[in-house]
Nucleic acid binder design. Structure first.
Lengths: 177, 177
DNA sequence: TAAACGCGGAGTACTATAGTCCGCGTTATG
DNA sequence: CATAACGCGGACTATAGTACTCCGCGTTTA
């Protein structure tokens, strides 16, 4: 029927991690390796979320991304629009006005208002968008959280910390020339 | 967001003409020229509608397509699925199981059931499909019919007949060698 | 019997998606 | 204070899907 891009999938998964991280900045590289997805591709997605005001970026060494708002106030619809850019479901080509019996000059009754087919598609799109608008990051994060054992958030924090330590170790290995 | 293809747009417009034609077969070429769209492209769409049992084809000189069922029993959803082939809105890549802390062997709690993000997308898709399923060819044809003047169906039949006559004329011109 | 039909395969042009690689300016830290 | 870790943006590539076209086959009917 249509396509929610991989970018949207990646983006939402990452935002869910940012909910867990609870205001500690996470870099796009960390987020990518934590989830086994492409770091360079993920790096193209986050600026869009930032421009949409969903996420806040901080530069520099310990920088990264944090949610710009409470997860209760971030809907799936917003995220999808931020990443994919509000492409309409249906691109009406106004075929009704091209009817050969009009001979190039369609009468007003044929071209007035919204095309009936287009109208149906607009309703279908609205249904989808309404469903997406009703779903929030906080809601989904909660349902994910219910499935995970209590120790899981701790494991995540440990993994993230371990990465920072490893970076320190690499530095020590390279530095004492 | 997603894409309803041009094929769907063309297909529905044609089916609406078949409602007007009321069981007189219309060829894909006639349908194409009546609406100012590509005949060769339209010819690729109709076999799909035929395989889906929406339309019935008759071969030979005065052949063409007729609706296989009453327009009240043909939903937009059926048409879209027939032409585009039931592609899902969202293609879940099961990222939840790739989390680095699982080390390649995700636990059952992480992979069981439907991914929460996927579940949201499935609900959104269902909303859209439900809207499309509620809309029938007859319903839309009626709303189109209300806009057109009473003489319009007659004009259409005249145009269609004129095409057949022209073909006869071309034949007469070529035949008496 | 030839022109008008439907059907299917092959091929083309264009656009979007998914992804990579690079260099820039910024910032914390050893 | 240099460097490595950050975000950001531009340029690039490969693949796939969309929107077509063209051709030839078998059928039908005037």
């Amino acid at each position: 029927m249509a396509q929610m891009t991989t970018s949207v999938e990646y983006g939402i998964h990452c935002l869910l991690w940012l909910v867990v991280a609870d205001d500690t900045p996470l870099s796009s590289r960390d987020l990518a390796e934590l989830q086994g997805i492409s770091p360079s591709f993920l790096a193209k997605i986050f600026p869009k979320l930032e421009k949409a005001g969903i996420v806040h970026a901080t530069g520099g060494v310990r920088g990264g991304y944090r949610l710009a708002r409470a997860p209760e106030k971030i809907s799936f619809l917003e995220i999808v629009d931020a990443i994919e850019g509000r492409k309409p479901l249906f691109d009406c080509q106004e075929i009704r006005g091209r009817c050969a019996v009009f001979g190039g000059k369609p009468p007003a009754w044929a071209t007035g208002g919204v095309c009936s087919i287009h109208a149906v598609m607009l309703r279908a799109e609205k249904s989808m968008r309404d469903t997406l608008a009703a779903e929030t990051l906080a809601g989904v994060a909660k349902s994910v959280g219910r499935k995970a054992p209590a120790a899981f958030p701790h494991d995540i924090r440990a993994w993230l910390e371990a990465r920072v330590s490893k970076r320190g170790a690499a530095r020590k290995r390279a530095a004492p020339s």
